[in-house]
Amino acid sequence: MPAERKGVWYWLLASAVVVVWMLPVVASVLTSLKSLDELNRGEYWTFPEALLFSNYAEAWDAGFSDYFWNSFVITIPSVFLVLFFSSLNGYVLSRLHFRGREALVLIFVAGMLLPFQILLIPVFYLSSQVLGTYDTHFGLILFHTAFQVGFGSFFMRNFILTLPGGLIEAARLDGCGEWRIYSRIVLPLMKPALAALATLLFTWIWNDYLWALIMIQSDSLKPVTFGLQNLRGQWVSSYQLQSAGALIAAIPPVIMFVFLQKHFIRGLTMGSTK
């Protein structure tokens, strides 16, 4: 359908839709800037009497500084590991010929479809009884890498299939090794796909709650999602702190989205085709 130009009524309707859609966010921003007194008086949806940014400071000091750091320590290495393995696998699964290739692609796709609850108990068992990685960031990073590499490899494979093969064939005829072809020729061509995949992975891993819940026990190691849920238990009726905490937890993915939206959206649509 071609994009059309619209009149005033359209813009009024569209603006109303956007405002209603954003109400939950607006409401929590307002709440995060109020005093507990105001909230106790039931003034939840009015503009704050004074903008209390101190709520953010209080939430930050209540543990968010550590949680925040932990989230980065978990997310960044996981994203890089997945990017590396996925690009390598994507190259292998699209440009190298060997028996079992299509079966492997299917196995990776199957992992994307299953309800991940089926992995919970064995992953807990492995990390607590076998590998000794329970309650470590390392264990969580390994798991995120393993779990996301299925989607990542499929994603990169689909992208590399769209690249012209002539360059790779020519390099191969010139006696270039496969590792050099991957690192010198294919990897630079993969940049747009890597950027798209990186934004998706960052969001998913940063936002993870379930796997941290299963594999992390110490408060000092918890990522920001787990920490937020924890602090909500302590701040039962301090909604101003809860909302400040929720907004702090949302900052990195939102910043990422603001600056890299194009890559993020392309990743979502690329990941869903084929």
Binding site: V17, W21, Y44, T225
Partner: peptide
């Protein structure tokens, strides 16, 4: 962008916001 934005929030954040 505004309409897309809830997508990047953690479901913990979404759940917290919607609970109130």
């Amino acid at each position: 962008s505004l309409l897309f934005s809830p997508m990047v929030l953690s479901l913990v954040v979404v759940g917290t916001i919607w609970s109130w």
